[in-house]
Design a protein around this nucleic acid. Structure first.
Lengths: 199, 199
DNA sequence: ATTTTTTTATACCGATCGGTATATAATTCG
DNA sequence: CGAATTATATACCGATCGGTATAAAAAAAT
């Protein structure tokens, strides 16, 4: 009942996500948002609450649509394949031609005013969560003798995430996908490709 | 002649640098700056021109005082020592207890509004310059048979810078120095420590 | 057809943004 | 002592910030 909505919520959220991704939380104004989404401010506030709520929903969408490779990668049977899929998955997302360069989780609010402190904190926790999930996966790998000998699982997780965060900056600075792939190749050099196993 | 300045320009610039470092270019307001520096707006504009000019001077100071290790590191005779000094130098600066976490060159303006596009461009060029300088150094190393065999110098430079940019995000997310050192240890694993040489 | 409900459009809100005009205070030069 | 010069303090500028009040428009329910 009532007057029907004249815009597609999902489509509008996609646009908001891309704007926040490219310009950051504070760098994106409500005017940017309403003009880009093709809706008015009351409509935006009616559906998404406020700017912070919109950003959080955009982040949720980002995780669901652009970071889905991450939890898929965790399912790889071998830890090295987990690592490689994550690294290449990040690089792919950070250099996709259809979207902005870099990573929303970093571009969103790396350094900001007090007004955005809550968003900043949320994004930091987001990064920690990913690193922790990866650490848990490597912990399992350690029990399965699936890590380089003596390798601490959570240090390895931090290493992988550090590379991915580095490529996010590289992508935001103009690096293309092949360049990032070459970085990833080097980052994985220390981790020997397992020889074919008989069993 | 004329009324003498009542504040120390260098000291004020140091404060501005730290504010921009912690909150970014757009996240730092003129009120933040004048209150932090203990001067009024006309004084700020009289000495530094405008906000953009102040940021550029702060960046210059940052390069001179916090990034001096970089060009020192390039003078190391062995490429691996160049790489290691750069990696640890960045990690040290990003986790110093006296200053903000992370890196001004990245925190300053990673993603921003159009109003800060010029600063953003300047910081991107800054990163490119460092990477290029390091690439040149590795080019020399290649001629001196001082690189892992088959290693492309500019790819190696990008690899080192990617790690350092990654640790900048890690530091901004709360990682401490020992954690970053362990990341660096792993990043250097593929690069064998040369055995003691006779000659 | 009228009421009810929801969305839309317009106009507006106080606060803050970067930046400056004006005038006063503090110094050196003549 | 002026006069000239430079820095300070105060108050203000238009523009934009995120957010909202008000009312018209478009649908469903009665």
């Amino acid at each position: 009942m009532g007057r029907p909505r004249e815009f597609d919520v999902d489509e509008a959220l996609e646009t908001a996500m891309e704007l926040f991704w490219r310009k950051g939380y504070e760098g994106t104004s409500l005017t940017d948002l309403t003009e880009g989404m093709g809706i008015t401010k009351p409509s935006l506030y009616g559906v998404f609450g406020n700017k912070e709520g919109l950003f959080l929903k955009a982040l949720e969408r980002y995780e669901r649509t652009k970071m889905n490779f991450f939890h898929e990668a965790l399912k790889e049977p071998k830890a090295r394949d987990v690592a490689e899929r994550i690294l290449r998955g990040f690089a792919d997302s950070q250099t996709a031609e259809t979207g902005p360069s870099g990573c929303l989780g970093i571009n969103g609010a790396l350094a900001c005013s007090e007004a955005a402190a809550e968003i900043q904190k949320c994004l930091i926790e987001n990064r920690h969560r990913g690193e922790r999930d990866l650490g848990k996966r490597f912990e399992r790998a350690a029990k399965e003798d699936d890590l380089p000998p003596g390798q601490e699982p959570y240090d390895l997780a931090r290493y992988i995430m550090t590379i991915s965060q580095g490529t996010a900056i590289q992508a935001a600075s103009g690096a293309d996908r092949p360049a990032l792939y070459r970085v990833i190749d080097m980052a994985l050099q220390f981790w020997p490709v397992p020889v074919a196993q008989n069993s």
